[in-house]
Write a protein that binds this DNA or RNA. Structure first.
Ligand SMILES: NC(=O)c1ccc[n+]([C@@H]2O[C@H](COP(=O)([O-])OP(=O)(O)OC[C@H]3O[C@@H](n4cnc5c(N)ncnc54)[C@H](O)[C@@H]3O)[C@@H](O)[C@H]2O)c1
Ligand SMILES: NC(=O)c1ccc[n+]([C@@H]2O[C@H](COP(=O)([O-])OP(=O)(O)OC[C@H]3O[C@@H](n4cnc5c(N)ncnc54)[C@H](O)[C@@H]3O)[C@@H](O)[C@H]2O)c1
Lengths: 225, 225
DNA sequence: CCATCTCTGTGAAAAAAATCACAAAAAATT
DNA sequence: AATTTTTTGTGATTTTTTTCACAGAGATGG
């Protein structure tokens, strides 16, 4: 058993965690590695390898106890650590996120919203405290906010990231149409390009047709659609 | 030069395309591989390798012509192929996407929206034609829609995916809190978990602190934040 | 127009990740 | 209680991806 976990495994384990939550809700008590794989589009081999990075937890010949596996992942990845989050930019996308239940009562709770447009702030009905953009660094620092979501226009994104980082944010999810960076490289940043996802899909489809793609993801598929 | 392109390279090339668009808008004429790398958080080596999968295009000792590289990626990845898209589920998130400019006038144009709630459909002000959910398969087939975005509640997601696939959709982006699957494995699916991104960030931060993560991404960072 | 300097393109090497294959442990069956 | 079946956990192997290193093509500059 290895205590050093590859990043792709961490990401898959997070997906497994979500799956275990759902299975537990549905009253499922036990799962086998091929079930998990089937659900996540990953081979059973990889599933078992990923889980084994966290130590032994399965039952030989009897699979994994759903609740136990969930807690195991939870504990080992430190998901029990609660963190505060904020949303910078409360336009169409920022508002949708701001009102999303999981962001309000989950482990990574949104406790502040920021926008440069004061009128916009006054219009919004929400239980989350909202602040003008110029107070971002100060508020982030005071509230101990560690995670941030950027949903501002492309021109403002890097500047907003800088202010968040100055306030002590350690992780950022960025939806603006530009990869934002942290100069020190110490802050984790995940750039998500929603429109770009369509571009990627289209490119993969094209290449799949002309057979010039090395591999298309997903493990042994079933038979029929 | 290799005509078979690894999937990670395809994804990075799509990011490069976005960057070239922006640089061109800003009047930048030439870029060097380290610039591109710096912008995307990837090493210059990888950038050059990725580009070289598409054939020679750079100028020895003089970098890449922005417009030329953009068109080169565009052509080689088949991004010139226009495709129609639709959005299934017009709640908070679906509406934000539906009104996003790039989805309305980009190459992957949203030409239909679906919701099971007729009242909701009647309330919405948009230039995109909206349809009740039960017509999904029929409309998708008739309009020749190839790409779809799923933004329905978790319970409905797989069922909606099935209907889209029955209508002939070839690629799906799914925002519901469950990995949806295509039985044949022929349909490309990208599951995006917005809340899960926060979980991943938190897990990576925890592991970084306890030094039990194999590698944290991002190439040689600069000096200061 | 020669020397030098710069940056691409790519085979080779290294690193990382996924897959395999099987021992071993427990459950199920007879 | 012995045998068969099942399924985990993990070293070993294979595949994939990234990084390296440098030849070579062209720019630059005297
Ligand atoms: N809406 C979508 O579906 C969608 C899809 C993909 C990507 N995006 C990206 O997400 C971002 C937000 O999109 P949107 O549609 O919500 O845009 P929007 O224009 O509706 O909202 C942007 C908000 O940011 C605020 N803002 C501007 N500068 C700011 C600053 N310096 N600090 C804080 N707030 C500031 C504005 O006042 C506005 O409220 C954009 O970068 C967009 O490209 C949006
Ligand atoms: N809103 C967010 O910020 C956010 C963030 C992360 C993930 N998500 C996920 O995105 C999805 C949508 O979220 P939301 O906040 O927009 O939810 P929502 O409840 O506001 O909207 C869901 C919409 O889907 C429609 N719908 C239900 N069943 C349908 C069916 N069978 N066919 C077509 N339409 C149907 C509903 O009528 C409703 O309009 C959910 O799965 C949610 O978990 C949302």
């Amino acid at each position: 058993m290895n205590r050093i976990i590859p990043e792709p495994s961490v990401i898959r384990l997070c997906l497994m965690y979500r799956l275990m939550e759902r299975l537990e809700n549905n009253g499922v008590k036990t799962v086998f590695s091929p079930d998990i794989g089937e659900n996540l589009g990953i081979t059973a081999h990889t599933i078992r390898k990923d889980i084994s990075f966290l130590g032994e937890i399965g039952n030989t010949a009897a699979g994994y106890d759903v609740a136990k596996l969930k807690d195991h992942i939870h504990g080992n990845l430190g998901l029990d650590k609660k963190r505060f989050a904020c949303i910078a930019g409360l336009g169409k996308l920022g508002q949708a996120l701001l009102n999303y239940r999981q962001f309000l009562d989950g482990d990574y709770r949104v406790i502040a919203g920021f926008d440069s447009d004061i009128n916009n702030l006054e219009m919004l009905r929400t239980s989350v405290p909202l602040y003008p953009s110029y107070r971002m660094t100060e508020i982030v620092k005071d509230m101990g906010i560690e995670l941030a979501v950027i949903a501002v226009p492309v021109q403002a994104a890097q500047e907003v990231a800088n202010r968040l980082i100055a306030g002590g944010v350690k992780g950022i999810i960025n939806f603006a149409q530009v990869n934002v960076k942290s100069k020190s490289g110490q802050v984790l940043i995940r750039n998500i390009d929603l429109y770009g996802e369509l571009r990627i899909l289209s490119a993969l489809l094209n290449l799949k047709e002309t057979a010039s793609l090395k591999k298309v993801n997903g493990p042994d598929p079933g038979k029929e659609d």
